[in-house]
């Protein structure tokens, strides 16, 4: 069983983001980068699949500049077996990234290709489904849990108001969301072992990026809290707002 997990280097979700003067990029100086959290769920899912089957190989792949090697090594430290760095621009054009990945993935012989549901930097949710399309593979998105048996994958998906279970033949592409797969810590041993695992660097297939960022701006400030009333009389209105506006009930 060969599983490939595609991951992305993104700014730490807790970092304070500064926009550069010319307003079409963020200032990366001194910025801390991490593996996109949804991609970590995907790595965890792949490792658990390997552990439950007692066999298999987990390869992590990313498209990016050499600095993204740091994120590949984090995934190796968690337990992935090998890594491939496809050297190229991590582009805002999802299709360009997907093409670069698909060119690399098409000969890897993966049974399962996993992505995070989205990268937490640009939130586009494009690359996973596009790779599936380019490779002609079935794609299941927003998967909270899956099992593999008899050449098929059974996926549990989160849908509005509930769950559904779908199945697809392997090889397949899945995009993983937070569900069963709380990522493990890389152990100290894992970190030490990671340096001995293979990390291959390849040049990306030349693909044109047709989308560019025109401008960036900071989000507007969050609106202030609202007092809906006082005492027990306010409860029905509060419940209504929580249900209908905030949609948390």
């Amino acid at each position: 069983m060969k599983t490939v997990v595609c991951i992305k280097r993104v700014p730490d979700t807790e970092a304070r983001i500064r926009i550069l003067e010319d307003r079409n990029a963020i200032d990366t100086a001194g910025l801390k980068f991490i593996v996109s959290p949804y991609d970590e769920f995907a790595v965890e899912a792949a490792l658990r699949l390997k552990e439950s089957r007692g066999e298999g190989e987990v390869t992590v792949v990313t498209v990016g500049d050499p600095a993204a090697g740091e994120q590949l090594r984090s995934a190796l430290a968690m337990g992935a077996d090998r890594a491939v760095l496809v050297k190229g621009e991590s582009s805002v054009d999802g299709l360009a990234t997907a093409r670069a990945l698909a060119a690399e993935l098409k000969d890897m012989g993966a049974d399962l290709i996993l992505f995070g549901m989205k990268a937490v930097d640009d939130d586009q949710q494009q690359v996973g489904p596009m790779v599936a399309e380019l490779l002609g593979l079935p794609c299941v998105t927003v998967v909270t849990k899956f099992e593999v048996a008899d050449g098929r994958v059974v996926c549990h998906r989160e849908v509005e108001g509930g769950y559904e279970v779908v199945e697809a033949p392997l090889p397949a592409v899945l995009t993983i969301t937070k569900g069963e797969y709380e990522p493990r810590y890389a152990s100290l041993k894992g970190i030490m072992a990671a340096k001995k695992k293979p990390l291959e660097e390849k040049d990306a297939a030349s693909v044109e990026s047709r989308i560019g960022v025109q401008a960036m701006s900071y989000p507007s400030e969050r609106p202030a809290g609202r007092i809906v009333g006082e005492g027990p009389d306010a409860v029905p209105e509060l419940v209504r707002l929580l249900r209908e506006e905030a949609k948390v009930l």
Partner: peptide, 12 residues
């Protein structure tokens, strides 16, 4: 980089 990773794991 390893020392950094190890330190970060401990901090996390």
């Amino acid at each position: 980089e390893e020392r950094q990773q190890v330190r970060e794991l401990a901090r996390q």
